[in-house]
């Protein structure tokens, strides 16, 4: 297929971007993660030390909690601000006309036949 590049490290990621990725990885799962698990759960080779540095920065900002659920060295995301944001988001969504619908969303609604086509795309090619 034309233009399908190899799975590569196309761009160096900035510290801020890496921070977002670690935080996203922690939020993607219910259970606390160790730095090694986070390292495995992030796309692309990232040095263990880098993961550790990022976690420390997130911890200093109060965005993650350490030694979560009695698991030493494991991290999980702090929920307070995220819950407040969710509340504010739902408030904005429930109050019509939806001010957030006016934004560019990552994805929009699907028709049934589109849904089928996308499922086939994901089913094909494994991974």
């Amino acid at each position: 297929m034309a233009g399908t590049g190899s799975r590569g490290r196309a761009e160096r990621r900035s510290a801020g971007a890496l921070e977002s990725e670690v935080l996203a990885a922690l939020w993607a799962t219910e259970r606390p993660l160790t730095p090694a698990e986070i390292q495995a759960g992030i796309d692309g080779a990232l040095a263990y030390n880098t993961v550790h540095t990022i976690l420390k920065r997130l911890y200093d900002k109060g965005l993650v909690l350490r030694d979560a659920d009695g698991r030493r060295g494991a991290y999980r995301p702090a929920k307070n601000a995220a819950e407040l944001t969710a509340e504010a988001m739902h408030e904005a969504l429930d109050r019509g006309p939806d001010p957030i619908a006016a934004l560019q969303q990552f994805v929009t609604g699907l028709r049934p036949e589109e849904e089928r086509a996308l499922r086939e795309l994901l089913a094909g090619g494994g991974a």
């Binding site: 971007a17 921070e19 977002s20 900002k61 995301p77 995220a82 944001t85 969710a86 969504l93």
Partner: peptide, 10 residues
């Protein structure tokens, strides 16, 4: 911080 997570099921 760049990423803001909302703890929401939506």
């Amino acid at each position: 911080t760049e990423l803001i997570v909302a703890a929401s099921a939506t």
